[in-house]
Amino acid sequence: MKKLNINELIWFIILSSFAYYIYKLFNTGKIYLYIHPRMFKYVYFSYVVFVILSISQIRSIFTPIKTNKIKIDYIVFIVPLFLAFVVNPNNLSGKVVSNKGVNLGNTSLKNIEKTITNEKEETLQSEIISDNDTNTDMYDDTDTNNNMDSDIYSESDDVDYYHNPDGVKFFEILVDTNEDLDRMLGEEVELIGFVFRDSDFTETRFVVSRLLITCCAADAQVVGLLCEWNESSKLEDDEWIKVSGIIESTTLYNEYLERDEILPLIKVTKLERIETCEDPYIYPYYN
């Protein structure tokens, strides 16, 4: 009988557990919690490599033993696996992410909108079949015709462009209010998101928010719209809600820009508590 090489065995277990965990993430759909769908192909790739490496590692399990000591370094690889299997995270809370910045809709969102239209333009051009002749003319002047473009953009929602339709709607309203608040004033909107509160908010105010992911969960940001509701204090942080209301505007002091800023504010007419959403994030820049 051949002798077992423990170090190689541990490395085999590590490699195969990584492969298994990635497989499990895709299988349960939890991968959406970690990575932007754009990056999925790379994660698939790493899955394949892990599988290949594990298979080739089987051979090495029986190679001659050079040292008796178990390499302490393996602990490093076990830590993430361990956290993954034991903690088995289900959601990224807004409170944790708010450490990295909250975006109530200031200038930076405008850029996102432009990016979206640019990228949308590209995807549409590549899918010529789905392109109507009437539309193509409009894409030439993207910058001057932003509103038009975003209209076209929302028309093509039935294409499975994003993972979650609620998130898409949320993002569109967010972008629209930022792009042209005046036009949106008085409109009635319905948003699904979680409750987020900053320490300096007044009692009646909260933010109906989502997490915006550009690449992976490490770059998540809280984005959302400020809401005003008399019974806000009854809401708990991170609770998922469906808000209906009318868009108004308000001013809030922005400590970075050191001046007041006009922000959209939703006067809540109806509020409903819902179950935790399966897809808490929104993913711009899908390509």
Binding site: Y34, P89, N91, S93, V96, V97, C216, A218
Partner: peptide
């Protein structure tokens, strides 16, 4: 628990993002 979950997600997502490369 929130912190631990959040930390785990951020930690693993950096790994998953970087490991293919």
């Amino acid at each position: 628990k929130d912190d631990l979950e959040g930390f785990t997600i951020v930690f693993l997502s950096i790994i998953f993002e970087a490991i293919p490369f």
